[in-house]
Write a protein that binds this DNA or RNA. Structure first.
Length: 223
DNA sequence: ATACCGATTAACT
DNA sequence: GTTAATCGGTATA
């Protein structure tokens, strides 16, 4: 009886077979490689008493001190960006346009402010909660499309900046899902025109044909 | 203390 | 394709 109820409450994907990513993953030194590897991984949150999860299908790498598009360009340190200097496996969340909370994964060892922006997920678990937070129906394809949408759907906000991704509030897991290289496209990043030549770097990674990908047709066809 | 602007989104024309 | 919304972070005075 009890087990039957549990089965009804947690019917969706086989979340118990998912392996939480460990520090070694986040401590890798090539932030673009991490951004590529994060495609297909599953981002989970257990916030406000709700378990939500979605498969990552769009990311952007920000290469810290040498990257003009990064908040930490030139090794800049402020109260906001201090979190970027933490060890890989930490959440960096900041407010954009006064409205949107953007979730980033800090990578590399402590002192090197690399980060990966999670720009889109395909909802897997907790669609009811996500849709309530987003103010749309649970089947809407826009549930996890765009970085502001991802954070809103998962209940992530700036108060979560600095949280460890090795804990039980926000984490990333590998359920064995693999996207082959021919299913992936690398393009320039979105909204970083101020970054000069660095705006042209192919640091955005998307899963071709995913309904959750943000951006225009043109932005999603670059090679 | 004040001014400017953004790693965006949704609702328009 | 265009644009309003909206406010914390950051730089300047």
């Amino acid at each position: 009886m009890i087990y039957a109820c549990l089965a009804i409450l947690q019917p969706a994907p086989d979340i118990y077979a998912m392996r939480k990513l460990e520090p070694d993953f986040y401590l890798q030194t090539d932030v673009t490689q991490i951004a590529r590897q994060l495609l297909g991984k599953v981002l989970h949150t257990w916030l406000q008493g709700q378990h939500c999860a979605g498969r990552i299908v769009e990311t952007e790498a920000y290469a810290g001190a040498t990257d003009r598009a990064s908040h930490a360009y030139g090794q800049r340190r402020t109260a906001r960006t201090e979190v970027m200097y933490a060890a890989g496996g930490t959440a960096y969340v900041y407010l954009c346009y006064g409205i949107h909370h953007l979730f980033n994964v800090v990578t590399h060892q402590a002192g090197t402010p690399h980060a990966v922006l999670i720009r889109a997920i395909e909802p897997l678990l907790g669609q009811d909660t996500m849709s309530r937070r987003r103010g749309m129906v649970a089947t809407d394809v826009r549930l996890g499309r765009g970085p502001g949408s991802v954070a809103q759907a998962l209940g992530i906000h700036t108060a979560h900046s600095g949280y460890s991704l090795l804990g039980h509030d926000i984490w990333i897991a590998d359920d064995g899902h693999i996207y082959p290289d021919n299913a992936i496209l690398a393009t320039p990043r979105i909204g970083v025109d101020y970054a000069g030549d660095d705006a042209l770097l192919p640091y955005r990674f998307i899963v071709k044909n995913s309904p959750s990908i943000s951006g225009t047709k043109r932005q999603n066809s670059h090679a």
